[in-house]
Nucleic acid binder design. Structure first.
Lengths: 136, 136
DNA sequence: GCAAAATAATACATCAAGGTAGTATTTATG
DNA sequence: CATAAATACTACCTTGATGTATTATTTTGC
């Protein structure tokens, strides 16, 4: 029910940037605004660039801007890029064979609720979050 | 949406033990059956004893048995004892002030679904899991 | 009461996530 | 073209979760 710190940072950065999705944001600004250490944030930003969410401009007046529309960035994409989606799709008890035989009681009990969460992550975009569209 | 390894071990152990909740289970048996390393499992079992879920019998013919009815052991209790419940109750983005001001878009979007999961954990017992009662 | 079988406790090892520092590279602008 | 402001890269440090080993303690049963 949680993300690791790096994923949490990624969300915070991208959500902040989506407030004005045409602007260039410097790592210094993001670092101060979000209380994330510079060097760590830099690496993350580079990773997010390589993943295609944002693009960097080096040099003076540089920074980071979205590389594509925030209507096309799904939350699951972000998770997948940073920490991987596997554990969100897999059984909560990591019984890798429980899907086959259905012998995992956790899977039976929480499968439905877990699917709802996964579906929500797969269908919600940064734009949706910005608009605070509520998932039902 | 996941537990740490120790919590996962705890669930596996207690779910296995609940199959026959009157039996003494030795750490050797549990270790082999569940593929959990002995020494680590021992510590976990001791912790689970101290938390009141099971009790230990030292000496020959010793082992571990439930210290109370599996109808009274809620999944949330187990999580709380092993890794703490905080992160399951808190905002997914760890905005510790988002409850007050409602400015966290994640909280708005996923609050409901998250509450459902938390409620399920708080109302499901080991006995329920054994009976595979489905949460709706 | 001794030996075997079990848990208890403690200390140390390993590994990955997260954090820090220093240097290199790029680019806009005067 | 030199400088300042920005990102890129690389190497190392720290810490907590997980894993391992050793020794101590308890209890049963012969």
């Amino acid at each position: 029910m949680n993300f690791n710190k790096t994923t949490t940072y990624a969300f915070k950065v991208l959500i902040l940037m989506s407030h004005n999705d045409q602007l260039d944001y410097t790592s210094t600004y993001l670092s101060e605004k979000l209380n994330i250490q510079m060097q760590y944030l830099r690496r993350l930003l580079t990773d997010l660039s390589k993943a295609g969410f944002i693009q960097s401009k080096r040099g003076k007046n540089g920074g980071f801007v979205f590389a594509k529309s925030i209507k096309n960035i799904f939350l699951s994409d972000i998770i997948d890029a940073v920490e991987g989606l596997e554990k969100f799709n897999s059984c909560m008890l990591e019984n890798h064979d429980c899907n086959k035989e259905g012998k995992c009681s956790f899977h039976d009990a929480f499968g439905e609720i877990k699917n709802k969460m996964t579906d929500a992550l797969k269908t919600t975009t940064l734009f949706d979050l910005k608009e605070k569209s509520i998932i039902t």
